[in-house]
């Protein structure tokens, strides 16, 4: 049996069990609403466009935050890989900060940027930056020395060697860095939105929760999960796979 078929059967069975449980009143509707009512609240949300606006607002923040974090991450990553002093000082700080969940910065960010877009985007940027820095640094440091030796015998050195050999050779790490940065940024975004003003998926989640609308809560959770999985698997993992194949790093 194909994996796709297995997956479809698995999810169909799961939803069927969930619906059946709700119908038999194994649990109360306010604790776990049935799939049908989740579907209805999702349909209502999309038909009056509130969820569409939420998605658009969330994606806008994510896109800005992710692009900025990839740029900053690449720049600092290169710095750390090239300068021993920077690696010994700034590098240690990056390692320490990396273990701080970026949402922890929200109170400070709110003081600095107010309770709006700025604070959330700041948290998203922090979410993606550190993991990108570390991957770029590792990528550049791990370039196969043979490539560098070969390039030098072909008259390449300095900035040319860096741009034409070292950077392309570390692309697999850059792609992995970008994929992880996206995953961290997405989580940071949802956390940030839960704690601030709307519109946005996270905001709608909290709003629905405040009004006891559990079917919308589950609906938004499903959207968050589906978006996360789709972007990861359809975009990043595909790029990563083809890069690894071409770079000869596939096992």
């Amino acid at each position: 049996m194909k994996p796709v078929v297995k997956r479809i059967i698995f999810f169909a069975a799961l939803i069927a069990f969930w619906e059946l449980g709700s119908r038999l009143e194994l649990w109360h509707e306010t604790i776990l609403p049935s799939p049908l009512s989740v579907y209805e609240s999702l349909a209502a949300g999309f038909s009056d466009f509130t969820l569409v606006y939420d998605l658009a607002a969330s994606f806008r923040r994510l896109l800005i935050g992710l692009v900025v974090s990839l740029l900053i991450g690449t720049a600092i990553g290169i710095l750390l890989a090239r300068s021993k002093t920077a690696d010994d000082t700034l590098g240690t700080m990056v390692l320490a900060l990396q273990s701080v969940p970026s949402i922890v910065w929200l109170p400070l960010a709110m003081m600095w940027f107010g309770l709006g877009e700025g604070a959330i985007i700041f948290v998203v940027i922090l979410g993606g930056t550190f993991v990108m820095i570390l991957n770029v640094r590792t990528g550049i440091k791990n370039v196969n020395p043979l490539y560098i030796r070969a390039a030098r015998t072909m008259g390449s050195s300095g900035i040319d060697l860096f741009m034409k050999v070292i950077i392309p050779a570390s692309v697999p790490y850059l792609v992995t860095g970008a994929r992880l940065a996206w995953a961290f940024a997405w989580r940071a975004l949802m956390a940030g939105e839960l704690l601030s003003a709307g519109p946005g998926l996270g905001y709608t989640l909290r709003y629905a929760s405040d009004f006891g609308n559990m079917s919308l809560v589950i609906g938004v959770m499903i959207i968050i999960g589906v978006v996360g999985a789709v972007v990861d698997q359809l975009i990043f993992q595909r790029i990563e796979k083809s890069v690894l194949r071409r770079w000869g790093l596939e096992n």
């Binding site: 490539y147 070969a150 390039a151 030098r152 072909m154 008259g155 050195s157």
Partner: peptide, 28 residues
């Protein structure tokens, strides 16, 4: 220092995986 007057072939081919065959040959 290294120079183009001395071509080197290593035990491993050391081709750049991000370039196709003719781009590799054109690299120098």
């Amino acid at each position: 220092k290294p120079g183009k007057d001395r071509g080197m072939v290593f035990q491993e081919a050391a081709l750049f995986p991000w370039l196709n065959v003719s781009e590799n040959v054109m690299f120098p």
